[in-house]
């Protein structure tokens, strides 16, 4: 068993209303940032876990996302990185 650290990103599904993203977009405009397009707000989780291989880590992260971390009705997830380490 080795120690790994995985990073998963959960984003509101494209096409679905994201009121948080919209509010940030408006606020950036109000602050004078020009040329700002669509803003979407999601979340990133860092998950430390022990496993035998990077492939196993990815499989387990995917299962975690499907069962708990992301809402299958409104969110999509991406496994952004898997690193060995404490």
């Amino acid at each position: 068993m080795r120690r790994y650290r995985g990073r998963v990103r959960v984003m509101p599904r494209a096409g679905l209303l994201d009121p948080q993203g919209h509010a940030v977009e408006q606020a950036l405009g109000a602050l004078g940032f020009t040329g700002v397009g669509r803003v979407r707000v999601g979340r990133t989780l860092e998950i430390a876990l022990e496993a035998d291989s990077e492939q196993e880590v990815r499989e387990r992260l995917r299962e975690m996302c499907e069962r708990l971390v992301a809402n299958p009705v409104t969110e999509d997830f991406t496994i952004d990185a898997v690193e060995a380490g404490p």
Partner: peptide
């Protein structure tokens, strides 16, 4: 109940935040 999939769909953040 929605999270438990005893009912379909979900309750998302209010439109006006």
């Amino acid at each position: 109940l929605c999270e438990a999939q005893l009912l379909p769909g979900t309750l998302a953040r209010n439109f006006g935040l």
